[in-house]
Write a protein that binds this DNA or RNA. Sequence first.
DNA 1: CAAATATGCTAAAATGTTTAAGCAAAATTT
DNA 2: AAATTTTGCTTAAACATTTTAGCATATTTG
Lengths: 347, 347
Amino acid sequence: MKKKILIHDIAKHLDVSIATVSLVLNGKAKEKRISDTLAERVLKYVEEVGYKPNQLAKSLRTGKTHVIGLMVEDIANPFFATVAALIEKKALARGYRIIYCSTNNDTAKALDLLTMFQERHVDGYILALPNGVEDEVSALVRRGKALVLFDRLLPGVLTNAVVVDSASGMYEATQHLLGQGFRRIALVMAHSEQTQMAARQQGYAQALREHQLPELVHEIALPQEHEQIVHELQLFFQVQPACDAVLFATNYLGVYGLEALTRLGKRIPEQVAVVSFDDNDLFRLYSPPITVVAQPIEAMAEDIINTLLSALESRAETGRIVQLQLAPQLVVRSSSIRSRGQSSNEG
Amino acid sequence: MKKKILIHDIAKHLDVSIATVSLVLNGKAKEKRISDTLAERVLKYVEEVGYKPNQLAKSLRTGKTHVIGLMVEDIANPFFATVAALIEKKALARGYRIIYCSTNNDTAKALDLLTMFQERHVDGYILALPNGVEDEVSALVRRGKALVLFDRLLPGVLTNAVVVDSASGMYEATQHLLGQGFRRIALVMAHSEQTQMAARQQGYAQALREHQLPELVHEIALPQEHEQIVHELQLFFQVQPACDAVLFATNYLGVYGLEALTRLGKRIPEQVAVVSFDDNDLFRLYSPPITVVAQPIEAMAEDIINTLLSALESRAETGRIVQLQLAPQLVVRSSSIRSRGQSSNEG
DNA sequence: CAAATATGCTAAAATGTTTAAGCAAAATTT
DNA sequence: AAATTTTGCTTAAACATTTTAGCATATTTG
């Protein structure tokens, strides 16, 4: 087992000071007037023996870890998993590592994790949070930490954010159903104060209001057992037989909803038309394919990491706040809704 | 902005030495004969001002970070995402943090990430690796690092591992199809030397051999564009019209496969029966529901973290190697296979 | 009562870097 | 030739802890 090689060993072998080696390695050779010949000798030897500085020591001294903390609702949720995968990839390419955690929408857990991120001295924060952590996040903002919220905002916290325009996405989806002739349109959403949830309901409500139709909202309390939720939805669809279409506010609600409808033997869209927020494999390949409000995941990831990195790099101009609102896209899939006999698979 | 409080500040305020505070905080008060009264005073004041030791300094000094590096193939793959979420949860409960990364089955990226893990001084490694990193992993094992492989082994590397018995899972699945009367059974797998892939093919091959039936294997080269893969599968199913059933070796291949079959308008199971390794929402809710070889994800996560933590804690007995092989479960879903009269939504 | 032991704490080294400040020699200016 | 500037490097402090070795004082033992 070869001993770990230190900067000290490099210096000794080359018969120079530790400082010299460090300066060369950090690209400050010119600035600090280390001669080119020596700088090259150092680099060559470092390469030769494969010396890698101890990151812990480095971080302790500089206060930078090159680690970004990413907090999502649930890493097993395809939306968050995909965003996380993309962010990780883009961050890695820019020299940053990601450490990610799921809050499961639990305020206490989110607080714990925020503390953990601070203990780990993450350089920046990317956060999709439950409500109830406003104070802690405000404190981070006040301390000038690089931070960007995504998916949802935090009421009363003014900081960088990248979100999707949920309201107009849901408005469009509702309009689409109305355009297809549906009149009793239900909305299934998570019981939550989160901003994106509220916006989705708002978009739905507005479209119905414009047609002077009543709202039919069902809120699911979370977290709950899978089986429990499906059961609750089955009951809802039985008690609410009048509804001829349903909107699901998130992809997991859509999945549960399809399961409930399948169990009840309801035919889609003849008995109930279905539209969900968020796309996924199931909706795309289900028969009939499910129309969705798709989020621009790739663009979100790009915007998130860009916003964070520019916040990180421009330590000086602390005032700057970037708030981006991206447009979701209605992906209409069941072309044969309300029309019979069409058996074509559209592209 | 309040200044960060240090152990030094605590010591000064209580008029004791830094060493005393540190010893008390690390539970060595008794051992080092710090009086109970003083120990309590320290703890009380620490609590009062909310002092938290700097983890970087601590790690630098002790060599422990309480961080575990988890490497998966793709965090956006539901199997890995779920395993990751469970491991994270269990690790957190035992005082460890997880930092995870996706290799995308890219050897170079995996090597990079292994280096990154070492630079970050992770205490332990949980790894689902592509081939080609045997030497580096062997080096880690030799250096006595706490490590556990999962999902797949690494040829020639003898160390802790938690895997599923892919061969018998696939054998059972193939037997199931044979029992249903299918005779031209194809296997779609990823082109890869990975042990779990080989085992899956082997299970399939054995079942066919026992019935003296020919193998019909199609290997997909990865990584490749989504669209490209689906297209390739469409071609396969057109060129291979003789096959009456198909096994997919992973969940993402199953998803692509369903997409290809849907586009070709093939009816399942009348024209082609489908079984996939790995479960997911799509297979469960597809109509008809898809039979799968489900992996015991919860048990895997539990075994993985237990194996790792005991490796971490028993630094002494370095010889001990734990290799677990878990049984997958065939979940038969399409009860009506080979029976007619499914009046489905042909619209 | 001297010697040995126990008690309760502290000084300082160690962890592995970065970087501000500074110093001698060489080069340039006056 | 003295003064000044530039060059090329080094010294040592700082980052925030843990932990070994040890030092007084108090207590017990012989």
